Amino acid sequence: MAARRRPRWATLDEEAVHLATYVGIAELLMGGCTTSMDHHYVHPRPRLIDAQVRTAQDLGFRFHATRGSMTRSTEDGGLPPRSVTQTAEEMLADSERLVRAYHDPAPGALIRVALAPCSPFSVTTELMTATAELAERLDVRLHTHLAEDPDEDAYCLATYGCRPVEYFESVGWMTDRTWVAHCIHPDEAELAALAAAGVGVAHRPSSNMLIAGGTAAAREMRGLGMAVGIGCDGSASTDHASLWLETRSALLLGRYRGGPTTMTARDALDLATRGSARCPGRADELGHLRPGACGDLVVWDTPEVALAGALTDPVEAWLRRAPSRAWATVVGGRVLLADGHPQLPALEEKLREHARAARRIQGLD
């Protein structure tokens, strides 16, 4: 299925990306998310990231756009068709353009930009190195996939003569401006090196379980002092955007891996809030309610029946009992979800347009 899906990447245009971003933000708000990032790394047409940023700006959503890319096509041993890859020069030039156009370093910013080649093995060594240098010069964050699949070990050993984390360090990415997705297969020494460098990890519980490729050692990472946050991944590998579900799944996976006392509901809540804020470098202003923090808040709705007998710890009850849904989601003091419904203009119309675009991309029209 994955092989059939990839040529569809070439059909993406600004309108499709706008609609996907709009619907994605609506679903994130319903799932209790106030701040998100998207790792967009296929660019068959220019200015797709611009469409994402404009959509988030119009809706008032806090959004970190990550400018990704792939330079290795199927002809070079990579995943995508040649039509959606770019040269290093194109990627670097557009990365700098996007940072200068949209990145807001001020406290409380709604829009920030990070640089994000898809993975160390989907782009050239030269691009990985140049991207790290560009991020340093522009003072922005770095993001990529790392140690997601055991095949990476074999590929990196055959191609670079070292394991993925060692290669990651050799291209200048072992830095506290970096956070990575998944990070499932580093060994203990590699994990300690990542922690010492200040690299953060976006833990993706549902995606890990659906793909069945293993899961991050979130408890061990937190024990090393790493920033570990929660991500729901893309629609290809989860097709939902519930922060509550991801947080509960992190709780369950933590206990499944290490035993019933190794992950508490409050540990999982910390992943979803303060840990997630640390990953993009926003621990001072996001993930907590203190003076000087952003005015972000989620109010949850859990049925009274589900809470029957929950007399001690409300956080344990919130995650361990019946599904909860966000009743109100506030971003920067602005109510974007009320009574469980997104307060977004023309949502029904956008859903119809999204369905038409999906049918076109899947070749059903």
Rank of each mutant, 00 (worst) to 15 (best):
S206T: 14
V23T: 13
P107V: 07
G229H: 07
A357L: 10
G200I: 03
P44D: 10
E246W: 05
P314W: 11
A216H: 09
D301G: 04
A241E: 08
M70L: 11
G309K: 05
M128H: 06
A277M: 01
W9F: 15
S69M: 14
L245F: 09
T238Q: 09
A88Y: 11
R67L: 05
S95N: 12
P205I: 01
A308Q: 14
E148L: 03
A101I: 01
R72A: 08
M30R: 13
G223E: 15
T262M: 12
A306T: 11
D284Q: 12
G172H: 08
E152A: 00
R97I: 09
M221G: 08
L307C: 08
A106W: 02
P342S: 05
L336I: 09
V180R: 00
R177S: 09
S122W: 01
E14L: 11
I230L: 14
G213K: 13
S237Y: 06
A181Q: 06
Y41T: 08
R72H: 14
P205G: 00
L98M: 15
A197M: 10
A26E: 09
D151W: 11
F168G: 00
P80K: 06
Y22G: 01
V123K: 07
H182I: 05
E15C: 05
R257K: 14
R222K: 15
G258A: 11
A193Q: 14
D365R: 00
D139C: 03
H354R: 07
E133L: 13
P7S: 05
E188V: 06
R62N: 02
T262G: 09
E126L: 06
E90V: 08
G333L: 10
D233E: 13
G231D: 08
V330F: 15
A135P: 13
T87P: 11
I49F: 10
P80Q: 01
D187R: 06
A10E: 00
L252V: 14
L271Y: 08
L134C: 04
V305S: 13
Y167Q: 10
T11W: 14
V84W: 00
G161C: 01
L307G: 07
D339E: 15
G332P: 00
D239H: 14
H182D: 09
V299A: 10
F121M: 09
H143C: 07
E285H: 07
A212Y: 04
L191V: 07
R47D: 11
L79D: 14
V335E: 06
V140I: 11
Q362W: 08
A293S: 15
R177L: 09
I49R: 00
G213F: 12
G363N: 06
T87H: 09
E75L: 13
I361P: 04
A114K: 03
T125P: 06
P150Q: 13
V53G: 07
A132S: 11
W9G: 09
A135L: 02
L243G: 01
T159R: 15
T74D: 09
L364W: 11
G225Y: 13
M91V: 12
V171F: 03
T302Q: 15
R255P: 02
D176I: 05
V201F: 04
T74C: 06
M221Q: 10
L251V: 04
E348P: 05
A154W: 10
M37G: 15
R334W: 03
A195H: 10
H64I: 13
A135Q: 03
G295L: 00
R257H: 13
T273R: 02
R334N: 10
P80T: 05
T85I: 03
Y256C: 05
R141P: 01
T261E: 13
